[in-house]
Simulated scan of single mutants.
Amino acid sequence: MVATQRHAGPVNAENSPSLRPPSPRERFYPRERRSVPAARAFAREALADWGVCGRADDVLLCVSELATNALVHGVPPGRGFLLRLLPGGDGGVRIEVHDSGDGVPAPPRTDGQEPGEGGRGLLLVSELADKWGVGERDPGKIVWCEFAGRGRGFGAEAL
């Protein structure tokens, strides 16, 4: 009798896990201090899974800043924020922080003076990210930023 082995891999190349684009990730965080490092760790894991490493430190810093802004300015007591990470087709990354607070965040004006106690977070985001903005949500808003990729995949050279 001849023994045969069945190949456990995908039958069609289109179904191959290495050819499928990475899936978006999202997680909800409560209004508490430990949510910021937890959001950063969640983002770090997603970037590692996607194979993004070129500008990963900039992405993680922006996750921290946007999460901190949501907690300080956008999340009323008893609520939280949603962090959504979206992979771009070109190897880029979009970060979205959804909160239920009102108001539109803006970096402080830099008219030759150092910003006050607050406001540096959005300055960092505006300098590090390729784009950033604020979208509507009911209730609240979505503060987002994007890092453009340089290639089609999510390899080390992608960001």
Rank of each mutant, 00 (worst) to 15 (best):
H73C: 08
G133T: 14
P139L: 08
E65V: 05
F28A: 03
S126K: 13
R84S: 09
R79G: 13
A13E: 09
E26K: 10
A129C: 04
V75D: 07
V52G: 00
E127M: 13
D138K: 05
C62R: 02
T4H: 09
R44D: 15
G78M: 08
G80L: 03
A70P: 02
L47C: 14
R6I: 13
V125T: 05
V93S: 01
E127D: 12
A67C: 09
E117H: 13
G9N: 07
A67L: 06
N15L: 14
D102M: 02
P10D: 14
A46V: 06
A70V: 10
S18T: 12
P24A: 15
L86W: 01
N12G: 12
G121E: 07
A43G: 09
P30A: 15
W132P: 02
G74Y: 04
V72E: 10
L86I: 14
R150E: 14
G74T: 10
G101Q: 01
L60Q: 04
R152N: 08
R6F: 13
P30W: 11
C53T: 15
A106W: 07
L19E: 12
A46D: 05
F42T: 05
K141G: 12
R34I: 06
G151T: 15
R150F: 08
V125D: 01
R31D: 12
D57A: 14
R120S: 12
P76G: 11
P30V: 06
F42K: 02
L19C: 04
D57H: 11
A156K: 11
A3I: 15
R20A: 15
L124D: 10
V75N: 08
S64N: 06
A43L: 07
G121W: 01
K131G: 04
V125I: 09
D130N: 08
R33N: 07
R120F: 14
D130F: 01
R109M: 02
F42S: 03
R20K: 15
L83Q: 02
T110M: 13
V97G: 13
G116N: 09
G88L: 11
R33L: 15
